Simulated assay, not measured.
Amino acid sequence: MISSVLPTYNRAPLSFVKGEGSWLIEADGRRFLDLGAGIAVNTLGHANPELAQVLKDQADTLWHVSNLYKIPAQEALADKLTELTFADTCFFTNSGTEAAELAIKMARKYWYEKGQPEKIEVISFEGCFHGRSTGAIAASGTDKMVKGFGPLMPGFVHLPFGDWEAVADHVTDKTAAILIEPVQGEGGIRVVPDEALKLLRRICEEKGALLIFDEVQCGIARTGRLFAHEYAGVTPDIMMIAKGIGGGFPLGAVLATEEAASGMTAGTHGSTYGGNPLGCAIGLKVLSIVSDPAFLAEVNRKAGLMRQKLEELVAAHPDVFEAVRGEGLMLGLKCKIAPADLVGKGYEQGVLTVPAADNVVRLLPALNITDEEIAEAVSRIDAAASAL
């Protein structure tokens, strides 16, 4: 008999009833160090008092009005995002999947309005994850994502991850955009080299295509920069964000240059909940905190500390681990065992991690995790590895 909740998840046998910073408390009272942060969502930890106060204040004032009207909090968040990034304009969504849909529409509409309607193809890369809508799974092209869901949205070209020099050979007169995560999350914490991002930028400029960055998981200070592409010193034409920007509240956005967004005029896109007063008030507070240079410096310092301890862990368990990978506090343990086995042993030790592809266990802690919590977390992973 089917459960009242559609059984599309393989859920762990855990039921959390309270959160405190980097800790989650189970219904039976057990405390777990959370190195998943809701899959890179709880940027500032659980029940962050500053975010909670913003939510309470806004909830007492105004929740939702729809985008039929101007929303001051939305305009303030858009102003802040455009001030801090390459973008000239923003559209707010509820999730990364919604952001992916708009990014694809925006790129295709741009060329349509330029009198080149044949330019509809989007190049993506093996291991990518851009969401679970029909358009986003077509972008991934993997059997696991698309099997059984009927005809896929056409117009996607899938290339190997890593063969960057060959990308130019696949850009044709039909290519609308290149879509890439500067750091793959679901794909196994795989960092795209700076030189590769620079190369893709040059290819787009030379061949006449838009460059789309998916920073849904790697953005919002996760890698020690506000956005991961900043390390390469290049900018996209369109960028998708979500997860961390809401600090736990459902919020996403598409950022774009004025030129790239030029086809998106009144009536071409919309969202009932996207950019409502509640979400934008919280997003503005998150952004004001994580964009502070002192905060980013602390993320980098903590990332260095955590990486050092993880390198020691890998050296101590050569039969379990192969390497540490990632950037900032978006880290992965490349395993020689099934990642699910380590994740399961972690539950027994009171530490939460997240599996990914390429035999990787993801570590995505709250960005304000303490030094002591980092040490405790690695100690617990050490115990989990020893129990395998």
Rank of each mutant, 00 (worst) to 15 (best):
K18T: 01
A297R: 14
V183I: 15
A52M: 14
H317G: 09
C335I: 01
L68N: 11
R11W: 13
V54D: 03
G224C: 06
W63S: 13
P151S: 09
Y112H: 11
N10D: 13
V320Y: 00
Y112F: 12
C204G: 03
F295K: 02
H64R: 07
M106D: 01
I25H: 12
I238K: 07
T61K: 14
G247K: 08
T272A: 15
S140F: 01
D163S: 14
V65P: 08
G252W: 07
Y9T: 12
I282S: 02
R108C: 04
D237E: 12
L251T: 08
M306E: 10
A139K: 05
V41R: 15
S379H: 10
T235D: 14
L331A: 07
G247I: 11
I212N: 07
P154Q: 00
V286Q: 03
A76C: 00
H130W: 07
F213A: 07
K105S: 10
V146L: 08
K105E: 08
I337W: 00
W63I: 14
A281C: 09
P250A: 09
Q217G: 06
K144S: 14
V314E: 03
P318M: 02
N67T: 09
D194H: 10
G326M: 05
H46N: 14
Y69G: 00
G219R: 11
V234W: 03
A221R: 10
T172R: 03
E258K: 15
G332C: 04
K109V: 15
A242E: 04
P49E: 06
E118H: 07
G150H: 07
A281N: 10
E230C: 08
F249A: 13
S291H: 06
R190Y: 02
P7T: 09
